[in-house]
Design a protein around this nucleic acid. Structure first.
Length: 842
RNA sequence: GCCGGAGUGGCGGAAUGGCAGACGCGGCGGACUCAAAAUCCGUUGGCCGCAAGGCCGUGAAGGUUCGACUCCUUUCUCCGGCACCA
């Protein structure tokens, strides 16, 4: 290792040269490669894997910079850190780009990966690249297929014809989670259509309860709002299913309604069905108004599916002409159809209790149905239909009235009692309903994981045996972007033999939603090249769960819910023991430009590589960490980078200027007791900074204020110039080394360079986070604020630890304070040691 | 409508209930320069004052406290999520 010689270097900080140099060193020395080692404490820090498309911009960069600080700090703290990176490489944009440019999605994807990887390397992120995975490789997606088969065996994967969300632009099906405001999540201006198609589903609802209950395990580790969003999304409702027998329609099944307020059933004045309710055909049979009714129904079914339209649409409905019996009272009430009743939720039928439900109220007002109060509010106020709207919320408290044997009970008592009675009398039962639906994973596109089943004329649907995995995508598909899956138009893929009977069979031509790929990728990182299993359970049990997951709030529901589901399935397959994949989640803010997230289509992208070229990677990293706290959105402003450029230049020059003089002090310590005044100030400020920076890194993640503290320290060092006088080399060395180590997680290349300039031959990766010295950090003298009646009237400089009486008498001796005393009497004295005196006078 | 989060200088943002505005950007004044950039020094919340100093000030209004950006109540605005979910 060459000794650093300031005469040989230019006086300036040259980030390009420094960064290339250290990246090469790190790679040669393989410093970020890790292996499971049970003798060491592990730490798994992970940033959500990127979809490699277009340019790696400052928004990506910020995300990885945050993760890299955490990874580097944890390494310095002695953890065995796993910090991997990979590519969410399947997906529609690749396919669309391929169609447009007449190339193969793989070509497009791989060139993007190359590009992304080059930029990530250029920023010096401390990834173990040996663990890199790409989800479009058969070595990876074969395990998607393997998991699918396991789910199929357990009834967790199934196929059914269903009404689905169809994006006419993507030409494929969307999961519920991918429909945003009634539009495709990729095409925010394209309303989704409703189509009936045979689809594959994963039974996420089988885990609805666990997905909800286990959110408790995440409290404290995950942002509250993400937990809330998931809780709302799962949408658990406890209620009851009740059968209303249909009158005068031979052979008609009873209508089942779902309600959370069975206690209000005596107030039901109608039963309302969803327009798509299957019983309607039977009900309308033989009625004189049948033709008209069916016309209305057809119209209602055609109505817009856009969510905002649905939520604000005028309530529409009509009377079917039939009646149903309230099983509690025997009363015959009319059966209506209402556009606000959803077939997908509950039973697709509701009882209409206008006195105690806003929607039912509006409906009944419009169509003149009677309104009957059956819960009297606690305050005993008389209820009129007109004022009911304001009071619905309070109806959970009160007394059930006019409800036969249940009159006089509190709703909280009536609900379980009536549910139990419905059950024993055979016309109902308690039921829990979730808003969460099963996850539709079929996609009619090429660039995804083939679903590993075949259809045989003789044997029907047959799973592809494990030994025949992976089912590989055909290399030369016909991509049109139109209609059914391109795989269906590729005979060499479709035509196969039945694994069971050996006869001719057709392959399933749908591919899997790419959210399947990202549901378990972080397990694969633990054992990325395993050819016989998705991963080795022993390796995974060392590394998993993820200690710190970092990503955008945009994935609060989709990815993070699917991942939790997948984890529980894998646990029940016996592959792992834990129930949650990530102990802690951090949702970083976006980098905005012009108030909007950076995106290629908006044309407001600031390329990360461009910034690295212009200012250096370290400067770019520092800027994104300094400009705002990491959880907040950050409006891109290039002029603010200047401060970071100046700061790093200043640090470089400072070390550069003194390095030669410090060489002799490399291995000599110093006695703190012998420190001069200047030295004491420097050491104190340095160690105080160290204490606070450590806290900002470890617990608070306030990287912006950590940087501010180090800037402050530099200002103090500067204020003690000239450092050649009154500061011994060994003291200055201590100060500059600590500055270097504090900066190391954020600007790693520069820190390595400074460390070398300071005469060290060992790289920073061998150096632990420095211990903070309580004694050196202690103030000898403190400034005490003197308040009179809570207003600041003076300042005292006193020895630290000065007694209360002494402090007060010193305060009273202060002329400014005395002036405000004005001969008044002290009523009360508050003394905060070493900080503040407040004299209350009257 | 329901559930979250946030409101602090010209801007990004700091502040365990203890001096509001750290740190940075920008501005202003100055040094260096033929000039500019870079760099360096000083200054920079508002109002009054020659000054010392005083008053006001963290969306608004109350409250708790010796003391509130911080805790409580009410309220306004903005952002995000969910939404005829029975």
């Amino acid at each position: 290792m060459a000794e650093y010689n300031p005469q040989e270097t230019g006086s300036g900080y040259d980030p390009q040269a420094i960064e290339a140099k250290w990246q090469t060193r790190w790679e040669e020395e393989r410093v970020f490669e890790t292996e499971a080692d049970p003798s060491k404490r592990k730490y798994y820090v992970l940033e959500m894997l990127p979809y490699p498309s277009g340019t790696l911009h400052m928004g990506h960069m910020r995300n990885y910079a945050i993760g890299d600080v955490v990874a580097r700090v944890k390494r310095m703290r002695g953890f065995n850190v796993i910090h991997p990176m990979g590519w969410d490489a399947f997906g529609l944009p690749a396919e669309n780009a391929a169609i447009q440019n007449n190339t193969h999605p793989r070509t497009w994807t791989n060139s993007n990966i190359t590009e992304f990887k080059r930029v990530l390397r250029r920023f010096g992120f401390s990834y173990d690249w040996r663990r890199e995975i790409s989800t479009c490789e058969p070595e990876y997606y074969r395990w998607n297929q393997w998991f699918f088969l396991r789910m199929l065996e357990r009834g967790l994967a199934y196929r059914k014809k269903s009404r689905v969300n169809w994006c006419p632009k993507c030409c494929t099906v969307l999961a519920n989670e991918q429909v945003v405001n009634g539009c495709c999540w990729r095409h925010e201006d394209t309303p989704v259509e409703s189509r009936e198609i045979e689809q594959w589903f994963l039974r996420t609802t089988a885990y609805a309860d666990q997905l909800l209950d286990d959110l408790k395990l995440l409290e404290g580790g995950w942002p509250e709002r993400v937990i809330t969003m998931q809780r709302n999304w799962i949408g658990k409702s406890e209620g009851a299913r009740v059968k209303f027998a249909v009158a005068n329609v031979p052979g008609a099944d009873p209508i089942e309604i779902f309600t959370t307020r069975i206690d209000t059933i005596y107030g039901a004045t109608a039963v309302i069905l969803a327009p798509t309710h299957p019983i309607l055909a039977k009900l309308l049979e033989g009625l004189p108004n049948r033709g008209e009714a069916e016309g209305t129904l057809a119209e209602m079914r055609q109505a817009s599916v856009k969510a905002e339209d649905l939520a604000t649409a005028e309530k529409e409905g009509f009377f079917t002409g039939r009646f149903a019996a309230n099983p509690f009272s025997g009363e015959q009430i009319p059966i209506w159809v209402g556009n606000f009743v959803l077939m997908e939720y509950g039973t697709g039928a509701v009882m209409c209790v206008p006195a105690h439900d806003q929607r039912d109220f509006e409906f009944c007002r419009k169509y003149g149905l009677p309104i009957r109060v059956v819960v009297q509010p606690l305050d005993g106020a008389p209820l009129f239909a007109e004022i009911l709207t304001a009071a619905f919320d309070e109806h959970e408290q009160g007394t059930v009235v006019d409800s036969g044997p249940y009159s006089g009970l509190a709703p909280g008592v009536a609900i379980p009692k009536m549910t139990a009675d419905a059950e024993s009398r055979g016309f109902g039962n308690g039921e829990i309903v979730f808003r969460l639906k099963d996850w539709g994973i079929s996609r009619q596109r090429y660039w995804g994981t083939p679903i590993p089943v075949v259809y045989c004329a003789k044997d029907g649907m047959v799973p592809v045996p494990d030994a025949q995995l992976p089912v590989i995508l055909p290399p030369n598909p016909k991509l049109t972007g139109m209609g059914e899956s391109p795989l269906a138009a590729t005979p060499e893929f479709v035509n196969t033999t039945c694994p069971k009977c050996g006869g001719a069979a057709r392959r399933e031509t749908d591919t899997m939603d790419t959210f399947v790929d990202s549901s378990w990728y972080f397990y694969r990182y633990c054992d990325p090249h395993n050819g016989t299993a998705p991963y080795d359970s022993a390796k995974v049990s060392y590394w998993m769960p993820i200690d710190q997951y970092i990503g955008g709030i945009t994935h609060a529901i989709l990815h993070l819910l699917y991942s939790r589901f997948w984890c529980k399935v894998m646990r029940d397959l016996g592959l792992i023991r834990h129930s949650e994949p990530a102990a802690r989640l951090f949702t970083q803010g976006m980098v905005l430009k012009g108030g909007k997230a950076m995106s290629k289509s908006r044309g407001n992208v600031v390329g990360a590589e461009e910034m690295a070229e212009k200012y250096g990677a370290d400067t770019g990293r520092l800027y994104t960490l300094f400009a705002a706290p990491p959880e907040k959105d950050l409006e891109w402003s290039e002029k603010d980078i200047k401060g970071c450029v100046r700061f790093l230049n200043e640090v470089f020059r400072l070390v550069d200027r003194h390095a030669a003089r410090l060489q002799d002090a490399l291995r000599t310590g110093f006695e703190p007791a012998t420190a001069s005044g200047k030295e004491k100030i420097l050491l104190r400020k340095t160690h105080q900074t160290l204490r606070r920076v450590a806290a900002d890194f470890e617990t608070r993640w306030h990287f912006n204020s950590a940087i501010a503290l180090i800037m402050e320290l530099l200002n103090e060092i500067h204020a003690q110039e000239p450092l050649e006088q009154g500061v011994r080399p060994q003291v200055l060395r201590e100060v500059l080394e600590l500055v270097t180590l504090m900066l190391a997680p954020m600007v790693p290349h520069l820190a390595e360079e400074l460390w070398e300039m300071l005469g060290h031959a060992n790289g920073l990766w061998t150096v632990a986070w420095p211990a903070f010295d309580e004694t050196l950090a202690r103030d000898e003298e403190v400034e005490i604020v003197v308040q009179i009646n809570g207003r600041v009237r003076g300042h005292l400089r006193v020895a630290a630890g000065l007694g209360e009486e002494e402090v007060i008498s010193r305060a009273l001796a202060d002329p400014a304070v005395a002036a405000h005393m004005n001969g008044k009497r002290i009523v009360k004295r508050i003394v905060v040691p070493d900080k503040l005196v407040n004299l209350v006078v009257a």
